[in-house]
Structures are given as C-alpha cells and as structure tokens.
Amino acid sequence: MTAAMQELSALDRAIINRLQDGIPVCEAPYAELAAELGTDETTLLQRLQALKAAGYLSRIGPMYNVERMGGAFTLAALRVPEARFDEVAAIVNAFPEVAHNYRRDHAFNMWFVIAVADAADIARVLSRIKAATGLEVYNFPKQEEFYLRLKFDV
C-alpha cells in the first residue's frame, strides 16, 4: 500500500474502489451506493467532495467511447532531438486535439494521444504537427484491442 493510500480511511478506499465500477442511473444514485457501502448519502457526498478537493479523483462522470460517438483517437510518437525537447513539447501541447503527452525514455521520446470529434481530422492534425515541428510523426492507430481495464485498487 502506498503512503497516499495509508492516508485514506477504509471508507474512502471502499468508495474509490466501488465507484470506479460504476454509478447507477436512478433518481438517488448516491443513496443507493451509500447503502451498499454501509454508510449514508450525506457522508458519501461529503467524502466524494473531499477526495476530489484532495486531488485523488479527477472527476465523477463518463469515459466516452470516442469511436462510438463518431470521433477517433490515435497514439502518435516523435523522435525529438534532446536539445529541442521543450520547444517541441510546447508546440505539440498547444494543439487542442492532443489529449495527453508523455515523455518516455527511448529514441521515440514523445508519446501523445490525438483525440478528435471527427475521424477525418486525424490525418489533418498529424500533418499539421509534422509541419509545425519539422519532425516525422509516427502514427500508431489501434488495430486490435485485447483488453481494457483501468481500475486502480486502493
């Protein structure tokens, strides 16, 4: 268990673990969840507010299936010369279509996700990034998905 997790009460951990699995669509979803967790609605709402304020939760809401909504996303990478790294990062991050960007230890050292509401825009964004940075943009679209689980037990 990490230090951060030790600071969380057993109830906080139970809330985080349970609510990652989903929130029901019904008139009083928090009351229903509270009953399941052995607490009351007021306490649950207070704890959620506190966990959000403390930065443990980014939001309470949907993860969209971008493709199902008519949009698209892809993973792309650049091989950025070390001396240009910060400059190129600023250029790439300025694109509103860039959803997140990680520096990784490799010759392919910049990895980012492009998410667009209209699938046809992927190619346009890739070529604009190439033009703006003067670097080859390597596109790694998903061809097959073996699994998707994004749950962190705390």
Partner: peptide
C-alpha cells in the same frame, strides 16, 4: 457511447 460511468482517479 459511454463505456464507463464512475469515478476517475
């Protein structure tokens, strides 16, 4: 269209 609806940590 929504694949998960819950807390995002």
């Amino acid at each position: 269209a929504i694949k998960r609806f819950g807390v995002i940590v």
